[in-house]
Nucleic acid binder design. Structure first.
Lengths: 184, 184
DNA sequence: TTAAATCTATACCGATCTGTATCGTTAGTC
DNA sequence: GACTAACGATACAGATCGGTATAGATTTAA
């Protein structure tokens, strides 16, 4: 592995473990052991564990939004179709073996007072809503702000329910509600 | 304080701290210090920390469902009105200073592999859905199972969003969506 | 009043936590 | 090929983790 890839690999390993066990539950010793890296190396790239968590959230945010856009674009050329496809994206996410609930809500639940981490969560959610609003405007629907928030509401609900029920079909149920909202 | 009340007080203190900081983040030493109780006392009532968490979840489940039923009954005599009132209940919860997101989703995020805790979460969510279904049946609406799941979807979404945005008005937005679903 | 149960206080256990220090080795760059 | 920066390995620091042991004080129930 090249030097430049080490930092990225470290974050990838951290992401996987944080998602599975939670942020406090995973110690840096476990991460370096899993990544096959010395402790000194980790702390050269990230001053503190919280900064590693922040970096993990940033990477997940980017990955999630890119993957969502790609998935929707592949599913439909129509903006409204892309908005509906976002629920299919959720379904595929829920079906993955690596799904353990929303890593951002999880982070907000464990670090609601540390600004560094909480701000990353807020930023991510804002960007997701912005994407929904973008699609709704492109579709020419009325009240794009309000509708985007409502779609986001359904997304968050589906993610939380899927985490508990471990049933990927909640994504389609949320999609059905979205249909009622968007196509009156 | 009477002896019998000590266990209850211990759970109350634990609930407050778990909600605020998370489950892993709060150690038993912090709990006993805040409760003004010796460590031996805690471990006489609860064999392990996980059992204390399970007890906290049980108490929160009962409190939440009783409070929800009471709030809805006070708000309306009509089952459909009570169902809508459940979103007002959420709003008052979100407005409280002690709101730090859903303690059950938080627990599921930190202990998704320990059955003891995760099962409490599943049970709570099932009982909430059952209550929604009960109201919908009383209202004489069609597809009560499906509608109950959709209302629950909106509840979960509102809770998750309120945790991040710290804006209690998302409850009313969820209520507006519920209106679109229930009154076509 | 007496005996059993529950309490407080404290010290302790081994493990783990985040983070640092040291040092020899490996790799990329000029 | 030499310089330099990043690496691995290890030991260590001080704090905290969940949980136990012990002993004395206090309360409850017979």
């Amino acid at each position: 592995m090249k030097r430049a890839e080490k930092k990225g690999h470290l974050v990838d390993v951290a992401i996987e473990m944080f998602n599975r066990y939670g942020y406090h539950a995973v110690g840096v010793d476990s991460i370096i052991a899993e990544a096959g890296v010395a402790k000194t190396t980790l702390y050269r790239h990230f001053e503190t564990k919280e900064l590693l968590i922040a970096a993990a959230l940033q990477k997940m945010d980017e990955q999630f939004r890119v993957d969502l856009r790609t998935f929707s674009a592949d599913a439909s050329t129509d903006p409204l179709g892309q908005l509906f496809a976002s629920f299919d994206f959720l379904e595929s996410w829920f079906s993955a073996a690596t799904f353990y609930g929303c890593p951002f809500i999880k982070a907000a639940g464990e670090y609601n007072d540390t600004n560094q981490i909480f701000q990353e969560v807020i930023l991510h959610k804002r960007l997701i809503i912005a994407y929904f609003e973008e699609l709704i405007r492109a579709a020419g629907l009325a009240n794009p702000e309000q509708l985007a928030e409502e779609i986001n509401l359904l997304h968050e609900g589906a993610i939380a329910l899927a985490q508990v029920t471990r049933d990927a079909s909640v994504a389609q149920k949320a999609k059905a509600v979205a249909r009622k909202i968007l196509i009156p």
